[in-house]
Design a protein around this nucleic acid. Structure first.
Lengths: 156, 156
DNA sequence: TTAATACTAAGAATCATTCTCATTTTTGTG
DNA sequence: CACAAAAATGAGAATGATTCTTAGTATTAA
């Protein structure tokens, strides 16, 4: 069992809870939470940062590329995983809210690295309110928003 | 001359100014503002909203697909055009700041349509400040930010 | 048990985008 | 006005991330 390899009991609990939530979320849309989907979620969860497909596949040799692509789509459509479009060669993927707290990204224009950032709740609230107003005026139904800062990371 | 077809003198002035600015901006990087680049800019300018490649090519039969792709890249690298990654099949393109005022986008998850939105200057200021703080902590050098709201447009 | 349905995974197919290259246009210099 | 050097063009080939196909496997429900 993969769980026995974890040194940190908190991480163990987190994964357990995460798996349970996801199972319910998928069941609501008549999808199964199969082994390979669990493994995919564990790779993303343990990495702790957004990953592109080659990294996901490399992180767990049991994962088949075609299945990962298919399952990423299923999980994105079910709201379990979030797709991040950087404009680079690959899309990036991370666990979606509420499995992960609401946050945004620094995206390096040189190396493509992605780092999570958190804004103050005051700023988040004002942005939300302002976006909601503008959406309402256009008859637009908001689902989620993206906010990312592009530039050059410390290494580049 | 394309300009003679314009009914609105304001639009004529706007294009003139725009072309002049772009010519300078390109010259600074040893690029020429050629005819086909002008035509590309005019298509985007007249549309008044972000366009995907097939629409750009369809809007002006004189534009060759391969040249449009190449020139979009040149103009994006020079900061004249902005690329919008929606996650759909195509990237979208629009004139960049300061040719267009700072704004954000509503992106329809059903039909892919993109609409410009403007936030209040108060919100923009707070977001900028907060992003700058967070970037500084990470040694990240900010260039620009994206903020887009995904959901369903009035038609969908 | 059995039928229906979901899932898997290897490889083929798709298609947006980039690359190649022969030709044309523009620029700068004598 | 050449004329060489540098940029740009455009048609088609190549690339490569992602999706599709398909035959087989696993799960569910009756």
């Amino acid at each position: 069992m993969v769980e026995q390899l974890l040194s940190n009991p908190d991480e163990f609990d987190f994964l357990l809870e995460t798996h349970q939530q996801i199972e319910v979320q998928l069941a609501q849309q008549d999808h199964r939470y199969t082994n390979s989907r669990r493994q995919l979620v564990e790779v993303l969860s343990k990495a702790g940062h957004p990953m592109a497909l080659p990294n996901i596949v490399a992180a767990d040799p049991a994962l088949a590329q075609s299945s990962v692509y298919r399952n990423l789509n299923v999980l994105v459509r079910s709201g379990v995983i979030r797709r991040i479009n950087t404009g680079g060669d690959h899309a990036y993927f991370e666990l979606a809210e509420p499995l992960l707290a609401h946050h945004h990204h620094l995206i390096c224009m040189s190396c493509g690295a992605i780092q999570d950032i958190y804004l103050t709740s005051e700023v988040e609230m004002l942005v939300d309110r302002n976006l909601a107003e503008v959406a309402l005026e256009s008859g637009f139904t908001p689902i989620y928003h993206n906010l990312d800062l592009h530039g050059h990371c410390a290494n580049c």
